[in-house]
Amino acid sequence: MLSVEALTAGYGRIPVVSDISMEVEAGRITAVLGANGAGKTTLVKALGGLIRPMAGRVLIAGRDITGADPSTATRAGVRLLLDGHRVFPDLSVHDNLKIAAITTGSRREFELLCDEYFEVFPILKQKRKDYARTLSGGQQQILALTQALLCQPKVLLCDEPSIGIAQALIPTILKELRNFASRGGAVVLVEQQIQMSLKVSDTALVMDRGSIRLSGLASDLMSDDRIRKIYMGN
């Protein structure tokens, strides 16, 4: 679904990740693991179009979106869910959803799509008219996730969705990522927590200092001692 070929990206002239190649497949959750500063966020930002890659290619279902603006990337089907439960604080929950549904045409279509997610996350329906800033961190993350899903992406890039939210809500969010994958979507899950991420994902890759050090099936990596060594800096 999403092919990444020898991607190098960073800020200014300084590369943060270099020579990354990976395949993200439909129907699967791919975990991207790594310690703080490994380059995980830079990688997904480059994939989502928020930073322009310096070299390499990004293809979505065969279409080249290397260096495309996020407005193009999202419409091509790659949507980045930023870290830190970010929503538009001074818009109502409803307005947050409305402007996120960039691919839905009619109002009716939008309402139907919303109703689908209101069933999964009833809290959003309850707080529909409230400002997003009045929501808890976890509720904001649910809103942010729903925003991302509303643009009906093919590939969902999630940057640390478990950070800064109540532990009790993490399973709800992971379950919805699994639902999205089982409907044929591809998920890239960036996380620092090894065990939790490997449990929910199908494949995983481990990054360190800007490159991929290890990759494989999540179930195999679960018992692989090399992950711990990479985290600890060998």
Partner: peptide, 17 residues
């Protein structure tokens, strides 16, 4: 609403598409 959103979080507005 989208213009108000730009005022609140430009990076998020970009990520939203």
């Amino acid at each position: 609403v989208a213009i108000s959103a730009l005022a609140q979080d430009l990076e998020l507005a970009r990520a939203t598409g």
